[in-house]
Design a protein around this nucleic acid. Structure first.
Lengths: 145, 145
DNA sequence: GTCCATGCAAAGTCTTTGCAACAGA
DNA sequence: TCTGTTGCAAAGACTTTGCATGGAC
């Protein structure tokens, strides 16, 4: 894939070695929107990678800004950052549990305006909305929440 | 304090028993903006509370919606919910590490408009901004990030 | 060839659980 | 009194670390 080239580029740019465990972890991350760390560790272990290596790789990618932590659906998960996935936020349906990425220009603009109003020089932000998705609003009656 | 009455009210309303460990945990939570769970556990332990009790209390308050998890300053922390503290978001300065609560009406409105655009029935949301606070923008030169 | 990353094993930290004694309503 | 809560101790889940070996450049 193309993400892989970007990964290699960023590793080189940071003077980090490109090992096959590191590439393997990246590939798994690239296949999904977000992952709980213990799940990733378990997956990599099935691929023959030691836990310690996976943890060390996560830590490295986090340090290089290629991976970030977010809370999504009440869980702490990690995901590739914007240079790989594009900027987005999360919506979590409290009924069906679905986790959806979204982006909204107007909202984005307002976020930056708000930062300006608050005197903040914004370098990143993360947002999670939760509630009921379109489907679940119809299915559910007033029994919501 | 007044928060305590609200706490008692909500416990009763939910048919939960009011024990002195529970009240003690609530009091500690009420004294700070947010806490890392292990820190809270340690504090309570100093007050003579068993770890298990603290964990069980956190879980209960979370279930009742009196406590929620947020990521703030790169850490997972818990804090009392809006009925105790009012609605707010977090800003974290990447330079001095300061963690500030803020609220912004325009932003709040836009969040709800965005939810509507996306077909979401919003029940809650949480936002963290990070960057450089006013002070650190001046101190720092272009060496930012 | 050099230096860093990996695997392994052990330790460390955080969190949950079973059960008998206890306390709130 | 009755039922849910607590403390304790043990187990479980998650994460980090030290060190010898192997791999990237």
């Amino acid at each position: 894939l193309d993400l892989e080239k970007e990964f290699i580029r960023q590793m080189r740019a940071n003077g980090e070695r490109l090992s096959s465990p590191r590439l393997a972890v990246f590939r798994v991350l690239a296949r999904q929107n977000s992952t709980r760390i213990p799940d990733l560790v378990a997956t990599m272990q099935r691929h023959g990678l030691d836990r310690a290596t996976t943890y060390r790789t996560i830590k490295l990618l986090r340090k290089l800004g290629m991976v970030r932590d977010v809370t999504a659906g009440g869980h702490r998960v990690i995901e590739l950052t914007d240079s790989f996935r594009g900027h987005h936020h999360h919506f979590w349906c409290r009924n069906c549990g679905k986790l959806v990425d979204f982006d909204d220009d107007e909202l984005e603009k307002e976020l930056h305006r708000a930062a300006k109003r608050l005197g903040i020089q914004l370098s990143s932000h993360q947002l999670e909305m939760s509630g009921f998705c379109e489907k679940c609003q119809k299915t559910q009656s007033t029994t919501n929440l």
